[in-house]
């Protein structure tokens, strides 16, 4: 992770209006975010909290009502930024009458790749997502998991620097979920910047360096996952090989260094708990930033 900002929002606000221009939903309220090169950034929030809206604004699929979204320092409406990013949508929005191969070939062409580069990329990506045996089948025959994987391959076709993943593990079984998370970590190791949004807490906890928690379009929490999850005034002791006596005298034992001390550090709560507190807190006092810490 470096100091270079790849993605930035300034007071980003989105109001959905109906056909007559009347206000329907305030989906996002004055969001300020910065994402640095090389980190995995998680957008966390319950359904309808504005995660997808944020991603769409970053991609220029939606226009902000107020504020602005910058990607690589350029406004989100600039097409040029797309050269360097990949996007996996919430659901697979791919042409169902194309095969896996044709799909990747098509998107490769949209990056103006030469045929040799394209074929190479298509082959390696199909291998990467494990669809070798289904490469000549139309996407309409694919299962949800396979569709998700071809969706990911599609997002990686240009070897992007910045990857936006909208609910990457939705619809995947535990194994698929695991594979997806490993993939994200691998991409991170390759130096890519990843922004993912999810309502699945475990996923976010496992892979994200930093997270932002959104609720009803408002930013509730922002910070490093490890810091956020630290409870400062509690000490946790994990020990092994303790007899019943020892357990009874555990404080003495520790004080006198009789047992084998495996760990003595600050315990963490689960992300789940933090998340739920924030949501509850937000419901009780809307419009305020949560004060859990």
């Amino acid at each position: 992770m470096s100091d270079e900002i790849v993605l930035q929002t300034r007071a980003l606000t989105k109001v959905y209006r109906d056909f007559w221009g009347r206000q329907k939903v305030r989906a996002l309220k004055a969001l300020d975010l910065e994402v640095y090169r090389g980190e995995v950034f998680g957008l966390l929030g319950p359904n309808g909290s504005g995660k997808t809206t944020t991603i769409k604004l970053l991609l220029g699929l939606l226009f902000p009502t107020e504020g602005e979204a910058l990607v690589f320092g350029k406004p989100a409406s600039d097409v040029g930024k797309n050269e360097r990013l990949g996007y996996l949508p919430e659901e697979s929005y791919l042409y169902r009458f194309l095969t896996a191969e044709e799909t990747l070939d098509f998107y490769g062409r949209l990056f103006d790749m030469s045929p040799t580069v394209r074929n190479e990329r298509v082959d390696s990506l199909i291998k990467l997502v494990g669809l070798e045996r289904a490469r000549k089948r139309q996407l309409q025959e694919y299962s949800k998991g396979m569709t998700r994987r071809i969706g990911l391959a599609q997002a990686l076709i240009n070897d992007p620097e910045l990857i936006l993943l909208d609910e990457p593990t939705s619809g995947l079984d535990p194994i698929g979920t695991r594979e997806m998370k490993d993939m994200i970590l691998r991409l991170k190791d390759e130096g890519k910047t990843i922004v993912m949004c999810s309502h699945l807490l475990a996923d976010v906890q496992d892979v994200c360096d930093r997270i932002a928690i959104l609720h009803q379009g408002e930013l509730k929490e922002l910070g490093r996952v490890d810091e956020l999850l630290t409870v400062a005034d509690v000490t946790q002791i994990r020990a092994r090989n303790l007899t019943t006596d020892c357990q009874n005298e555990i404080r003495d034992v520790i004080a006198r260094h009789h047992g084998e001390l495996l760990a003595m550090d600050n315990p963490t709560t689960t992300l789940e708990e933090l998340f739920l507190t924030i949501v509850r807190d937000s419901e009780a006092r809307p419009g305020r930033r949560a004060g859990v810490r």
Binding site: N82, E83, Y87, R96, L110, N158
Partner: peptide, 14 residues
């Protein structure tokens, strides 16, 4: 309608 356009316009397509 099928939102396939999302994956197209987020490529460097003019």
């Amino acid at each position: 309608k099928t939102k396939t356009i999302y994956t197209v316009v987020t490529k460097p397509v003019r």
